[in-house]
Write a protein that binds this DNA or RNA. Structure first.
Lengths: 212, 212
DNA sequence: GTCTATAAAGGGATAGAC
DNA sequence: GTCTATCCCTTTATAGAC
């Protein structure tokens, strides 16, 4: 038996906790751990500071929760796309399409992840599970197989991944720079990213094409 | 007439000011504006906190000085390489070689610049002078000319620059990630970057090659 | 110019009433 | 669960002696 008082309690509880998490995510992503202020998070969530500590005990714990959650949204897709059974070209297209789409909605996520990643790289890699899952070794075998078959030029998984990730993610990191340099408005930039959905796979594929 | 007392004074003055700047650069680059502590900078410079304020008045002013100076080291080379008269392939090679070399010595500079750039994008672009100098328009004309001559596929300057910068700079931003993912030691990573000096120009050139 | 001591502000965390 | 008030440590900045 569940009392209606209990239900009301849980509703409010969930709602406040969610509000805090959303507020904290926004502030942390924009300012980082060191730059974020508990007061700012509280204001964003329309509650007072004491509530933050009531629910999450400390700034560090709150941050850790947010950080892990963001990684959880960001990472598993990489593993499933790259570790899957699709042909190389499909993987490249899927990867680029999925991430440009996602980053268009969350353009500050890369800077946040990369900044804070430095403080706990091993924790993150473990949490992402890209190594543990074997996705990388399967990708490596795929690259090796295609090389032997003569369908692509030889390339190591590290360089392949570095190229793919660089081309997809960096433009969001350099967005202010690119917009200033080329006088792009926000909608220009959105169009620019849209173009890259086609351009990056072409770019990567043609660089892999064997020299005839 | 310049007294020897004055010279001693200036020597010490320059020396202390330099020491502060070097210390501040190191701390700011590693921790960012919000994460850096004046005490830490003072310790690094082997002086006391009061000196920092004596020379630079406030943390914000000290930061601004450092930030501008770092940009001054980083940026002009881009303008001179890309805005010059060399053939496209030479520009690509020069760009990649110069920046991978420089970033190998200063691997934290990209994160620092990109993080803090968000707070003052227009100031930076003006300071860099890449637009004002006309380097970008000259590069644009060069791309257009080569396209008309049929020596390369059509590409906009924005995408060209985005590709080149992404491939060169991102690996340093993602260094912890790449090292964890592929189990690279520091010297493995150095070798990885060394390989990219050849790989990136090949990669970019082959993607520009007209479809036969 | 350089130091010690201290003021002043900022910001994370807790106590206690409701 | 939520609020107000407050503690207290950290950090920036200044005063003042040398």
């Amino acid at each position: 038996m569940v009392s209606s008082a209990y239900l009301r309690h849980m509703e409010k509880n969930i709602s406040t906790e969610e509000r805090i998490k959303n507020a904290a995510k926004k502030i942390f992503i924009n300012k980082g751990l060191a730059g974020a202020r508990m007061q700012e998070i509280a204001d964003e969530a329309n509650i007072n500071k004491a509530m933050l500590h009531y629910y999450y005990r400390s700034k560090d714990l709150l941050f850790q929760r947010i950080f892990d959650e963001v990684i959880g949204e960001f990472a598993p897709k990489i593993v499933s796309i790259l570790g899957g059974e699709s042909p190389l070209e499909t993987k490249i297209k899927d990867f680029v399409h999925h991430y440009l789409e996602m980053l268009s909605r969350n353009p500050f996520m890369p800077l946040f992840l990369i900044s804070e990643l430095r403080n706990q790289p091993e924790h993150v890699i473990e949490k992402v599970g890209i190594v543990r899952s074997g996705a990388l070794s399967r990708l490596g075998e795929q690259l090796e197989m295609e090389t032997k078959a003569g369908t692509i030029r030889p390339i190591t998984p590290a360089h392949f991944m570095a190229n793919l990730i660089s081309l997809s993610i960096f433009p969001f990191l350099g967005q202010p720079m690119l917009q200033s340099m080329f006088g792009m408005s926000d909608s220009d930039f959105a169009l620019f990213i849209e173009e890259r959905k086609k351009l990056i796979p072409e770019f990567v594929m043609s660089s892999l094409k064997p020299l005839s």
